[in-house]
Design a protein around this nucleic acid. Structure first.
Length: 514
RNA sequence: GCGCCGCUAGCUCAACUGGUUAGAGCAACAGACUCUUAAUCUGUAGGUUCAGGGUUCGAGUCCCUGGCGGCGUACCA
């Protein structure tokens, strides 16, 4: 009978076949002996972390009367004749099992030794420490909770092949301590953001992922289709326009932490779906957004890592406020040695681009050229943290015109380690101005710019009901986590990053975009 | 998209300038062992060297095509 079992699943992975076969035979043997290898539940009384917290300071060689039941995955087995040690781990940490033949008898001890690395087991016994002081559970009873059929990777080296690590993240997280650490940082950052914003009166909301029109950012969207309505939809590329509708509705402070989707290339800094934090606060301008940003990031750093100092490219970087504030114009002056302003004639700015070796397109105005000069000469050299202020109006269709300069907007980006971490502005709340900006964007779209989008009439209608003065902020959560966890690839902070399909099937995937 | 680099046992890695039967640790299997902790010790088994083609007396190694990945670059308000 076992032949059928063996033939079916493992055929494609001949290498693992022997080990898998062996374990399948154990499953059959257990069933034959009336033992369910996949029982329905196990009632544990504690976990490894709680035991460590409570008994972590027991003297070596201590025996207690504390009876516990605990469950975990077998990670290490040290069989030593009539005494066995095992290390199991649950969600809170690892703990050692002390399994003595004198305690449970030869037959049960042999059964215990039949467990394989990777199996889930539940045990009961008493808390003790070994002579060397290792906190352990002296096992009185045990049972298999789930038989693992596949062997875990090398217990010391773990998995190193990045492809396998990302495709089989469930294995990566079992065997690679650093992967677990990075995601612990991520989850702490998310909790810290919510805690900080809740403390300041922000309400967390959820807005649609399926949009009938892309907007709120410059990016190519993913396309999809709703069958019942027979209409094409796009996956959102930003949270912005719905959140500002909610400010119109009368929410003073809202935020959303949500997935956005951009149909772009993959890199160490880009995944096609990623997590944005966007927040909007009525009656304030981008000045308050700066204060909020530096406090929020410092709070996240403290909560998730215990310090406001992170390692950036091998050197410490202080994230505690206040951060330097520098206008875009001054930043360019500082790093590129030229003075640019959107009021300059296009020909003059083009001449500067030529001099600085910055490529450009004929359709670009002075504002876009200015931004391009910044991005090519300055941004990647800024270590930060620094607020870069006052971007050209031409490249900021949702930001309010600067109070002192009609060609600029009240907008800032946060740069840390040469990368954009946040983007914020005093929101544009003049519906007439907004319509003009949308129409300019629509013109670009009509001219072939696939990242520009058309006029969002419903958003304009909302604005016509009155959007109060508002400050808005967007933070790339994945990049924030990268910074705080000290990793250089966005794939390290996304549980299941986008990869090519595993099987080289005869792909009918000519153009993924459409 | 383009360029460079990589892919060897289940896992982590070796294999000189193209040269004998592709090696080692972990995992596995058989055995010893009641305070180990990457347990240790003895023995055994385990390979389509990513795939396909080519050059050569001889290919893990050189060439071509393809697959997957990494890095860089392009793209990325």
């Amino acid at each position: 009978m076992s032949e059928d079992l063996l033939g079916s699943g493992a055929a494609s992975e001949a290498g693992a076949h022997d080990e898998r076969t062996r374990r399948l035979e154990k499953v059959e043997a257990l069933r034959a002996a009336g033992i369910d290898p996949y029982p329905v539940r196990f009632d544990r009384t504690t976990d490894a972390g709680a035991l460590r917290a409570r008994f972590g300071h027991l003297e070596p060689g201590t025996e207690t009367d504390e009876e516990v039941a605990i469950a975990g995955r077998v990670l290490l087995l040290r069989r030593q004749g009539r005494l066995s040690f095992a290390t199991i781990r649950d969600g809170s940490g690892a703990i050692q099992l002390f399994v003595s033949e004198g305690e449970i008898g030869a037959e049960r001890h042999t059964e215990f030794d039949g467990f394989d690395l990777g199996d889930w087991i539940g045990v009961e016994g008493t808390v003790m420490t070994t002579r060397k002081g290792e906190l352990s559970i002296k096992v009185r009873g045990f049972r298999l909770l789930a038989k693992a059929l596949r062997p875990l990777p090398d217990k010391w080296h773990g998995l190193s092949d990045t492809d396998t690590r990302f495709r089989q993240r469930y294995v990566d997280l079992v065997v690679n301590e650093d992967a677990r650490r990075v995601f612990a940082v991520r989850f702490a950052v998310l909790a810290a953001i919510r805690e900080y914003l809740a403390g300041r009166g922000f309400v967390e909301v959820e807005t649609p992922v399926l949009h009938d029109q892309a907007g709120g950012a410059a990016a190519r969207p993913f396309l999809t289709h709703h069958n019942a309505l027979d209409m094409d939809l796009v996956l959102r590329i930003a949270l912005e326009l719905h959140l500002k509708r909610l400010i119109v509705a009368g929410f003073d402070r809202v935020f959303e932490i949500g997935r956005v989707f951009r149909n772009e290339g993959l890199s160490t800094r880009h995944n096609p779906e990623f997590t944005m934090l966007e927040l909007y606060e009525a009656f304030v301008d981008y000045g308050e957004m700066m204060t909020l940003t530096e406090e929020l990031v410092a709070h996240c750093a403290r909560t998730a890592t215990g310090s406001t100092v992170v390692d950036l490219d091998g050197a410490p970087l202080e994230l505690a406020p206040p951060w330097r504030r520098l206008t875009l114009r001054d930043a360019i002056r500082e790093h590129a040695g030229v003075d640019v302003h959107p009021s300059m004639p296009v020909a003059d700015v083009r001449a500067l681009c030529d001099r600085l070796d910055v490529p450009y397109e004929a359709s670009w105005g002075s504002g876009k050229l200015m931004l391009e000069i910044y991005e090519k000469t300055t941004e990647h050299r800024v270590r930060g943290p620094v607020f870069i202020l006052d971007y050209p109006r031409e490249v900021s269709p949702l930001a309010r015109v600067h109070r002192d300069d009609p060609l600029l907007t009240e907008r800032f980006e946060v740069i840390i380690g040469g990368r954009e971490l946040a983007n914020a502005f005093s929101e544009l709340n003049d519906p007439i101005d907004q319509r003009e900006r949308f129409e300019a964007q629509a013109g670009l779209a009509a001219a072939g710019d696939e990242e520009a989008h058309g006029v969002d009439e419903d958003y304009l209608r909302a604005m016509e009901y009155g959007l109060p003065p508002t400050g808005g902020l967007g933070i790339g959560v994945d990049r924030l986590v990268m910074l705080l966890a000290g990793v250089s690839s966005i794939r390290e902070v996304i549980l299941f990053p986008q990869l090519r399909p595993e099987s080289p099937s005869g792909g009918a995937d000519g153009d993924g975009g459409a």
